[in-house]
Simulated scan of single mutants.
Amino acid sequence: MCNDHADPKVTRRHLMAGTLALAAAGATLSAAQAQTSEAAPATPEDALQRLMDGNARYIANAPINIDHSVGRAARAAGQQPFAAIVSCSDSRVAPELLFDQGPGALFVVRLAGNFINEDGLASLEYGAAVLGIKLIVVLGHSACGAVDATIASIQDNTLPPGHLPSLVNAIRPAVYEVMPSEPENLLAAATAQNARSNAERAQTQGPILAELAAAGNLRAVAAHYEIATGTVSLL
């Protein structure tokens, strides 16, 4: 998350004030323009389309981002990711691969269960206000062990050992929200609801993210990754 080209005093002042002035982040962005041959997406919708196009290439086994040495020197000068991905830590879920994006294109926040805690929220604020990301994707996935463990904890009325209860407590609201409807596949329903709830938080949490979203400069969406097929579907 380091950036040698941003003025730390300006960055801290604007982040603490919750203003939108750093959305431009001129010095940071200009330092990283050479990272990719593609122009930075102009809108959140453009950013989403770029991700979905990349996923289509991944499914077709026709990636274009295969030479990671290209742009290495430029990346040392700064970063300009166009989207943030809130992803599960599951080893089978690799955002850069499944969206066919090269180094420097995605700002990834990962932890088991792909929920947004205070640290994740701060990371997304940095990505949006300082790095200029246009889009946040909260990406759930099939056979999520963290959601499955939360369901088991609720059904058995027990908590897992160690620090795992913190994961269960974060995911629990999504499970409770879908349980009354008695879905045929509780794991799938809870996984989807967990992604939706966290995407909503990413777009409405003030002051920084909510202000950017209200101005049309940021969008958050929920999505689901099917491991067996490689397909990302918007929820």
Rank of each mutant, 00 (worst) to 15 (best):
N185G: 11
E96L: 13
P183Q: 07
I227H: 06
F107K: 05
D90G: 06
A190I: 03
I133Q: 08
H163D: 09
R196Q: 09
L186S: 06
V147P: 00
A215C: 10
V70F: 05
L22H: 12
L209T: 00
K9P: 01
A210M: 06
D67F: 04
A149D: 06
A24D: 14
D148T: 11
F107V: 04
A129T: 08
S87I: 01
T19P: 02
P180W: 13
D46Y: 04
E38S: 12
V70E: 14
A213W: 09
A39N: 11
E38G: 08
A188T: 09
R172E: 13
L15Y: 09
G206F: 07
I208G: 01
A202K: 11
L167G: 02
T150C: 12
T19M: 08
Y225F: 15
T231E: 15
T150A: 12
V137Y: 01
E182M: 10
A122Q: 13
D46M: 07
I64H: 15
A223H: 02
N61I: 02
S142W: 00
L98Q: 05
L139P: 09
Y176W: 10
A25D: 05
H224A: 11
A174M: 07
A220Q: 02
M16F: 10
A223L: 07
A47E: 00
H68Y: 15
A214Y: 03
A199R: 00
V109H: 04
V93E: 02
A228D: 14
S69D: 12
G102I: 04
T19I: 07
A213K: 00
Y126F: 15
R92I: 08
A17N: 12
V86F: 15
H224K: 10
L20K: 05
P95I: 02
L111V: 13
A23R: 15
T231C: 10
S87L: 03
T43R: 07
R50C: 03
A77D: 12
S142R: 01
D67M: 04
F99Q: 05
P103K: 09
V138K: 00
A24K: 15
A214G: 06
A40W: 12
